[in-house]
């Protein structure tokens, strides 16, 4: 079997060794620039621009401490955590309702609505910022957690609906029907029978959207304010100090940034993969 090419996971020892080497090399190559950022964060500040670059050095936590104690960095981190987690959870809840409806009842125009939802991603953010800015000023939502949470909920809905619809499609309608026959109420069916079976989808939607919201910059910058700025804004507004890029600061924030996300990816990896199979729906657009 090893001699013919195929897409089955390989069992052949030689192939496996070669592939392991190739996979690890690739992973390390892709990770190198990030590793460089982390290394810079751990270097003494005055050696960052040294050429030849310092590869061996005594690591210091000073840059990380400085970055966290600089101005509002810590509260920006906390803000990011607050608005991203609340908004994504809210989005997943309403998306589950919508996805259930799309999947089970197929209301008129389902395909079109799904397409419209995805269209939120179409336009460069800069195009939408101005209407939002004016809207938020009128509604007095600027620089409020409520405003940001509403915004990021919308921001997270399309992808969540798409993922969850796929997963719910994959749950047999027999569950619903049996439930109905035994006189169960609809909420019971949805939350007690169907929901537990789409757990992977829920986690995948959560992980994906957390990454997106956590990284979103422009809207946070324009719609937020000193009370509600998140960490990308905290980074962007403090890149230069005294006219010069503060590399240690950028590297430290970058490091603090990648750590929680890397942990999420490491521990929720299978959900990421399964989530992206959209419950293995195919050709269903």
């Amino acid at each position: 079997m090893s001699r013919s090419l195929n897409f089955k996971p390989s069992n052949d020892r030689a192939t496996k060794i070669t592939l392991t080497f190739a996979c690890w090399t690739t992973a390390i190559l892709f990770f190198l620039p990030i590793a460089w950022i982390i290394a810079t964060a751990l270097k003494p500040k005055n050696t960052v621009l040294d050429i030849p670059p310092k590869v061996l050095f005594v690591p210091t936590l000073q840059n990380l401490i400085d970055a966290l104690s600089f101005s509002n960095t810590l509260s920006y981190f906390i803000n990011s955590i607050i608005y991203s987690s609340i908004a994504v959870l809210l989005a997943i809840l309403v998306s589950f309702l919508a996805a259930y409806s799309f999947s089970r009842f197929k209301p008129a125009g389902t395909d079109f609505l799904m397409f419209l939802l995805l269209s939120t991603r179409f336009v460069p953010a800069a195009a939408f910022v101005i209407p939002f800015f004016q809207l938020f000023n009128i509604l007095k939502l600027k620089d409020s957690f409520l405003g940001l949470i509403i915004f990021y909920t919308m921001f997270s809905i399309p992808f969540s609906v798409w993922i969850l619809k796929g997963f719910i499609d994959g749950v047999s309608t027999k569950f619903d029907e049996t439930g109905l026959v035994y006189g169960a109420k609809r909420p019971h069916i949805m939350f007690k029978l169907v929901l537990p079976q789409v757990r992977s989808g829920l986690v995948a939607a959560f992980v994906f959207n957390i990454i997106f919201v956590w990284n979103e910059f422009l809207f946070n910058f324009q719609l937020g304010g000193l009370k509600t700025y998140g960490i990308p804004v905290g980074l962007f507004t403090s890149i230069t100090k005294g006219g010069q890029v503060d590399w240690s600061f950028v590297a430290s924030i970058g490091t603090l940034y990648v750590l929680p996300l890397a942990l999420v990816i490491y521990f929720f990896q299978r959900y990421l993969l399964v989530g992206l199979t959209f419950g293995t729906v195919r050709g269903e657009v």
Partner: peptide, 16 residues
């Protein structure tokens, strides 16, 4: 390996 490989897409482009 996959975690390391995925990091480029999750760190804010401002930093990378």
């Amino acid at each position: 390996a996959l975690t390391l490989f995925f990091t480029p897409m999750v760190v804010t482009p401002i930093a990378t």
